[in-house]
Design a protein around this nucleic acid. Structure first.
Ligand SMILES: [Mn+2]
Ligand SMILES: [Mn+2]
Ligand SMILES: [Zn+2]
Ligand SMILES: [Zn+2]
Lengths: 140, 140
DNA sequence: TGCCAAAACAGGAATCGTTATTAGTTGAAC
DNA sequence: GTTCAACTAATAACGATTCCTGTTTTGGCA
């Protein structure tokens, strides 16, 4: 059993949630995708193996996986939520033409959170970069 | 007539759109709000003066105002789109408890766009900061 | 192994923010 | 004043997500 796999099992055990076949299938679909699928895309992939799964189950599985820290969610306007197995802090860019999402490597903006905190009386809980552009394939 | 007012008229004239009473009312509602209302909030404010306006008209007005550069839109997950009369590049933070939005002053991250561009083959079109936290009033 | 309660699921209805449709109104240009 | 494109009101439709209900599966335990 791989290290990540053991890590996932640990997170499930600690959380009290059970690693059901549906939740495993969602994880597998994420792993087999090219990185940042939507719930609908995951649903379609999962249905190929098990046609009885419901879309609502995929959403519920994703929310559990996020809660226990196995996956991250990313949001762009004009796009359904994307899910990411890479839970390290990193920056993703979305193509406004085809919807493809890729990571932008080597982005170091320091710790956004701590750089913004001195300038606001709010207690910052989240600070993220949302980046859009046109991917190489869509540049004509 | 104030400088901003003249500026708005210029933008309408140049665009070919007409500055109708409904669009003016949407602008007034934005100006009278405390900064970052949703379409629904703007709609409610506009309806007080003119009960016949439709929500769709508010959305259409806002989309025209954004297109000609009079207002900006900001997006957070778990919140309807917020509209902002301040079209200067700046950072806004949203309270996850009450939904209030305020600006974070003196944020200088350099030009995000040009700092990210060297690290991706995408042609970047948008780069924004999305920040959430708990406002002073909601800190118990 | 068989039973039970709790958790998870499938299917479908409901919700929310937003956009599209359509018929009617307005108002600037002639 | 007439005309015609732009605009509006009302309402239907939409996509993403959540909620609900009855059924199935699961893990704990006799
Ligand atoms: Mn990523
Ligand atoms: Mn602002
Ligand atoms: Zn593309
Ligand atoms: Zn608050």
């Amino acid at each position: 059993m791989s290290r990540v796999e053991q890590d996932i099992r640990d997170k499930f055990r600690r959380s009290g949630y059970t690693l059901t076949s549906q939740r495993r299938a969602v994880l597998d679909a994420l792993r087999d995708s090219d990185g940042h699928p939507s719930a609908e895309e995951i649903y379609l992939a999962v249905k190929k193996k098990n046609p009885r799964v419901a879309l609502g189950t995929v959403y519920q599985a994703l929310s559990v996986l996020e809660e226990i820290g196995v996956i991250d969610t990313k949001h762009w306007s004009d796009s359904p939520t994307r899910y990411d197995l890479n839970t390290e802090p990193h920056c993703d860019i979305r193509c406004v033409r085809c919807g493809r999402v890729d990571e932008i490597p080597d982005v170091d903006l320091g710790d956004l959170h701590s750089r913004l905190q001195p300038n606001t009386p709010y207690e910052i809980t989240e600070a993220a970069l949302v980046v859009e552009g046109i991917c190489p394939a869509c540049r004509t």
